[in-house]
Amino acid sequence: MSKQLVEQCQRGNAFAQKRLFDQYANRLFRVSLRYVRNEPEAEEVLMNAFLKAFRGIDKFSYRDDNGLEAWLRRIVVNEALQHLRAKRHLPIFQADEESEEQSDPEPLPDAGLDTERIYALIRELPTGYRTVFNLYAIEGYTHREIAEQLRISENTSKSQLSKARALLQTWLTQYGYEAETRRIS
């Protein structure tokens, strides 16, 4: 199904492009929103990412749906990093992150620690912590790749990750999920 969709998109079929967009827009919007602070920025990132995806889909060779999603996700992540660089949120400065670390997370809407709450907590992390945690823990990048992407040293990447984990643990403890978060750090 998706293979035909990709082939049609490669031929420039607008209907196929719309279907592909509908299929992945919400999911990729969440990805974008994990990297940037607010929704307008996330929408901008998503739009640019889809533009690049449709313009570069000729070079994409379809294998399976996971491959397609991973390709689209990678484009969104790269676009988000580019956006952060343009907005001067990157590169990460250690001093800035230290000051941000003291802030408490905003009150979350639901009581239970479900996926939405985890998602919201990740979004509450400071920019540097959040970016490194997203890239390492969720996207599966190595510290070396993160260092290259964010133009920082590997040690900085490692320290940012450990601080992100510690902060997440603290917040989760505050919400009463000590048992689960004990193992995070």
Partner: peptide, 17 residues
Amino acid sequence: PDNWVRQALSQLPDVPP
């Protein structure tokens, strides 16, 4: 923990937050 977070996020519904 990282894998745990990853799996949790993968189970998010295909709707906006």
